[in-house]
């Protein structure tokens, strides 16, 4: 589905990613873990086209996509959420989802301004579909509230809903459990599993919450200081001595959902 091939990226003097390669299999939940500053977000930004890598290729469904603009990549079927929630705060919950439908619909300036019949039909369709998505992620009751008024847990779920609205093949989730309590995290896990099982969407999950990662992912890649230090099933990774030293060995020191940037 997705192949990362020898991706390198540096900012000024700082090397954030060094020769990263791994694959994501279709239908998998692939976890991407690593200590703060390991380069996880940078990698997601490269896959979604926000950053250009210095070297390397990203291949999605057999096609090279690194040189494409973020918009184009999104339209090819890669959607995402952000570590620092990027909702449209002054728009309502349902409107956030409706913006997600944008790329799948087409009425333009003129047809909208003159309210042509097909526009009305399309608008009803967007509305229906968006409500459906809201129900799917259990946010139906928040429909008309402003997104910025939701608690952080629901904001993260809403962001996932907005990503789903684009009908993606692959969703990149950047720390969806950050700031969530235990109950919310469990609910989040259920939703992610449901998305994979029912909607057949492949998922890349960047997450610090090890319980969540170990529970729902099919395969795990571990980054440390911009390099892949392990890649395998959750069990394999957990046993990998290098990982234990670099990361899991410190697990006791890492509070749940800890995140240096927040």
């Amino acid at each position: 589905m997705l192949s990362i091939k020898e991706i390198s990226k540096s900012f000024g003097g700082l090397t954030a990613l060094r020769q990263i390669s791994f694959d994501v299999k279709k239908g998998d939940i692939k976890a991407l873990i690593g200590p703060n500053g390991a380069g996880k977000t940078t990698l997601l930004n490269i896959v979604s086209g926000i950053y250009q890598p210095d070297n390397g290729e990203v291949i999605f469904l057999g096609e090279k996509i690194v040189h494409l603009a973020p918009t184009k990549i999104a339209r090819k079927g890669i959607s995402r959420t952000f570590q620092h929630v990027e909702l449209f705060g002054n728009m309502t919950v349902i409107e956030n989802i409706m913006v997600g439908r944008h790329a799948k619909t087409k009425s333009g300036f003129f047809s909208s301004g003159f309210k042509l019949p097909f526009v009305m039909k399309e608008e009803r369709e967007i509305q229906r579909k968006s409500e459906e998505i809201l129900e799917y992620i259990n946010l139906g009751h928040r429909k008309d509230e402003y997104a910025s008024n939701l608690p952080i847990g629901e904001q993260r779920i809403l962001e996932i809903g907005r990503a789903l609205a684009t009908e993606p093949r692959l969703v990149l989730l950047d720390e969806p459990a950050a700031g969530l309590n235990m109950r919310e995290t469990r609910n989040l896990g259920e939703i992610i599993k449901k998305i994979r099982e029912e909607l057949k969407i492949t998922i890349v999950l960047v997450e610090h919450d090890m319980d969540l990662v170990m529970r729902i992912s099919d395969s795990v890649t571990v980054l440390n200081f911009g390099e892949v230090i392990a890649d395998g099933t959750p069990l394999e990774v957990q046993k990998n001595p290098e990982v234990i030293v670099a990361y899991l060995g410190d697990e006791e020191d890492i509070p749940r959902g800890y995140n240096a940037h927040t």
Binding site: E86, L87, T105
Partner: peptide, 29 residues
């Protein structure tokens, strides 16, 4: 014309750009 536009798919997209261009790009706008 303008009111119709604002309450349409396009108008929503315009408001979304105001809020977060980053997210708009990620949604394929």
């Amino acid at each position: 014309f303008s009111i119709n536009l604002i309450h349409s798919r396009t108008g929503r997209a315009l408001r979304a750009i105001h809020e977060s261009e980053l997210a708009c790009n990620a949604m394929g706008l």
